[in-house]
Design a protein around this nucleic acid. Structure first.
Lengths: 178, 178, 178, 178
DNA sequence: AATGAATGAGTTTTCATTCAT
DNA sequence: TATGAATGAAAACTCATTCAT
């Protein structure tokens, strides 16, 4: 029923990193919830940071897959853009919402941690690219970064205020600008 | 020359909380850099969190004072709005820029820490109110939250990408929407 | 009855370092036998190595005091030299003898640990100096390093063979050479 | 080109034990440098201590072979004795010199580890025997242990002081005593 | 003969906080 | 008001060894 030891570790760590934050989550808690030995964790991940990198990479892929999928369900640019913000809205409404996986971490790592920052930037750039791809159809790729900023704004403000209006406002701004 | 013990503590803690993050900054480092005894810190601040609250409150007042001041230097709504983003731009260009003091902390505290979250929300609501006040002149207060979102977007994206274009884009979006 | 916390720590650590070796002695064992909290140890000694340095310095002073004292009990050079080796002999006969405090450690530290090596070399140079001082009376200071070598030989060989003949032989060699 | 798995393990372990010490060398480092799997190591050596025993035995044979060879190159007792110390001198001058393989280990093992201590004592007794054999020619076997002590002294003092004078002094003492 | 995965017990060090003076 | 000393709990990580394949 349970996955491999490695999967157990990644699952527990990912859940805890998101729920409690990276620094607030100790190795002991991860192995306790994963039900594995401490040395087993270190067999698979040389350091806690490697586990963080794995979590972020997985989450990034999951998020982009979801976004591309949702976008592909629509045929007009307007609807595609709306779909992005609607996806955000659904995330936020989930009971366990704790903000953006990536923005959360960015404030927990030291400035000079380029390894983790690179993973986060890569993810964010993929979102920018998604908007660019959508907007190419109507030759408005110059709006991509504007929409990307609305995307970030909606996410971070939703976290700060624990409120949903941020998504709605960002979505309507995007519609206006298009 | 040096301020009171309390001031020394607040100064050291504030600097370190911003430079390294809240969790990454230990009590020992604070008292070492402040040059005071450990028990002296606890005399003034019952817990590390109280020190955090003090830091955030101070920073909030400082930031709002600055913003109001910059805004008051201009006479048209367009210029006032632009002044807000220009202030942001100057902050970001400073060598020690590490992102928004408040957004940084929001990802470091547990979700149920309402005390700290309240301070942060209060600060952010004051920014929303500032935009509302500015926009009242031209009877467009409904744009306040839109501009506030651009404000947040510019800040968080500047941190993520360590780039300045985020401010410029947000500023031009605000101009468009006005 | 018991000394201060610091003394308890130093006493326990010194005993264990000598009985079991430095690497084989864990912080946990030290605090358990000292009956203090772990953080109390680190209050007084920033690292395990600092505790080692303290142990070696104390032991060095103790050893040199003892040697000077024993030597001063005699009036001829022959008797003074003999007294050095007799002191060694008494040490070796003690039930808890585990070899020379300093030679034991020299094989446990990495080559590039100059801090600890310096303490050890200083101690050994004081022994060389002691012989030189004794020999000055009879204008044979050139024998100092020869006697020092016999001193080391007696100590290390006593450890290797768990035998006392090494002292007797070294002592008689010194007598011959004088 | 590379030897058998067993040889790879012994080579890596021997090098690391000498360079870093026994306790400071972990199983993981050994298998990493040997390029073998962990279980392969335990296939050949039931425990880390068995690997240590192998290392010491090999080293002992190598050392005695070398000494006998060097001694046999000379025809007088004086020259044979000198050859022993000259061999020592050449060892010490080698860039990777870290002291005597056997004296290094003797301070790293617990007192009650008779197995390892026996290997070391056996090696040292062979040196004593070598001196005895050399001295038999001139019927001065009673000097064997004296020369052996000089041998040990030269080695341990060379390690402590990272200096060569110890060998020269020991050699000249031997000459005097002969 | 060889291996990658798994482990329990251990390592040194740091945390925020309290207490006696 | 100010402090140095003391602490329990937790941090990240490593140890030598074993097991299933």
């Amino acid at each position: 029923m349970k996955g491999s030891v490695r999967d157990q570790i990644v699952d527990a760590a990912s859940r805890l990193f998101y729920e409690q934050g990276y620094n607030a989550t100790g190795i002991n808690q991860i192995i306790a919830e994963a039900g594995v030995a401490k040395a087993s964790l270190y067999q698979h991940f040389p350091s806690k940071e490697d586990l963080l990198a794995e979590y972020l990479s997985n989450e990034s892929e999951r998020a982009m897959t979801k976004l591309h999928q949702e976008v592909s369900n629509h045929d007009t640019v307007q609807k595609k853009i709306a779909a992005v913000f609607d996806t955000l809205g659904r995330s936020i409404r989930q009971p366990g919402f704790r903000g953006c996986h990536f923005l959360n971490i960015v404030s927990e790592i030291p400035i000079d941690n380029t390894r983790i920052r690179n993973i986060i930037q890569k993810q964010k750039n993929e979102v920018r690219q998604l908007f660019k791809t959508i907007l190419k159809e109507v030759k408005k790729t110059e709006l991509a970064d504007e929409f990307y900023l609305l995307f970030e704004a909606a996410l971070i403000a939703a976290k700060v205020h624990r409120a949903e209006w941020t998504i709605k406002t960002a979505k309507s701004m995007a519609a206006k600008l298009l």
